[in-house]
Design a binder for these strands. Structure first.
Lengths: 214, 214
DNA sequence: GGTCGCATAAGACTATAGTCGTAATACGTT
DNA sequence: AACGTATTACGACTATAGTCTTATGCGACC
């Protein structure tokens, strides 16, 4: 018995995915989540065999959300579903350990094929993109690992840093003293092997999807 | 009489381009340059109708090089030649005002077609990429304009900032006092409409090609 | 040949970033 | 229960970033 979790903030697209899968793979049990927190909750409490993850979920912060999941559940197979067709981003997604990338434009049959392939342990990519993607970058996944080793607080601080906030503003947002923010910042530097904010921001921005290009 | 300048640091690829073009378009006069400085020199002293620019030239700094050329010669038609097939980067290249993108894998016939189309005033893109690319981002080209308005010194300082250097180190590299670097930094902030280094670094890193993903 | 605008340069000063030492709490291990 | 370890927290201190002011050189323009 195989259970699959669909994590996507768009109810309509969840329906579409469910329809596509139940038609071709009726033996699957399907669960759903609409944001990252409930996704993590369900993964903690239930036995899930495959996660279909949309990067653009509330609380997900794009690639960071995937890193978060990969860190919490290293053994869980994850396939990313996204509207983007940016090959650079897809390369990053695969480097970080996702077992597949399903574009939102994929047909029902493609989606079913992808899920079957990934459940078999293969990596699945859309045909038209597979050449540009297979070059996994060693330095990048090394960096992703380091970022994944950050504690939740450090992680939040890094996100705010990437948005250009001052330590004082970050402290206000997280309701902690500026001194504490600074301590987190120093810890982040040590974990990432760097020594100033600029380098941290660069790493954070390269790990994540650029600001929306729509 | 139409004159075309090939700017590419690889002599072999310059030869290949020249061969492809002289075969299909024998009426063209061809000039060559191997780095950004000689490119600018030639553009200043001669009448060029179209520039074929490789992004990865010495002194070019990827997209910054294109911005530089676009700023110095706004009326000059430019086609970018590059080995990348990253659609996000190609979108940026077009947003910044290039009239075409020619992948290094293009055939001689494709290259000739592209040059003809661009000389006619059209925008040319390789067939297999044209869907993912046409979404020009307004905010992005606005930002690119602002970066293009930086003076040469400010520009260099921004590049060093993006590399994570301290003001002191930047001053050493440019052989000016740290105080002067700070003055440049403040001027950059004003032109870009921001107020700290983190935001400047983010803008710089988004304008440029990410670190090599090969 | 002024003079206006602008890039460059730099010192003095204030604000912010980053380091260090320390303490309290949470959590798994024995 | 006792222990080690990691995380969170924060104040005091130093280094760096960023602002303000002033000065000089240089090309455009009347």
């Amino acid at each position: 018995m195989i259970t699959l979790l669909i994590a996507d903030d768009h109810p309509l697209y969840r329906d579409a995915l469910r329809g596509a899968l139940s038609l071709s793979l009726p033996a699957l049990t399907l669960k759903e989540a609409g944001d990252l927190n409930t996704t993590v909750d369900i993964l903690n409490n239930e036995d899930i065999d495959l996660l279909l993850l949309d990067l653009h979920m509330p609380g997900s912060n794009d690639l960071f959300g995937l890193l978060h999941i990969r860190k919490l559940f290293p053994e869980l197979p994850v396939a990313v579903v996204s509207g983007t067709e940016d090959t650079a981003l897809i390369s990053k997604i695969i480097s970080v350990g996702a077992l597949g990338f399903i574009p939102k434009t994929a047909s029902a049959q493609d989606i079913a094929n992808a899920v079957e392939a990934i459940l078999d342990g293969d990596v699945w990519l859309p045909d038209n993109l597979s050449e540009g993607v297979d070059d996994v970058n060693e330095a990048f996944s090394e960096l992703a690992d380091r970022v994944a080793s950050l504690t939740p607080s450090q992680y939040k601080v890094l996100c705010y840093m990437r948005d250009g906030l001052l330590n004082k503003q970050i402290g206000f947002n997280l309701d902690i003293a500026e001194a504490t923010v600074k301590a987190h910042v120093t810890a982040i530097f040590k974990k990432l092997g760097i020594n100033n904010r600029t380098q941290a921001v660069l790493i954070a921005s390269q790990l994540e999807l650029e600001p929306p290009v729509q």
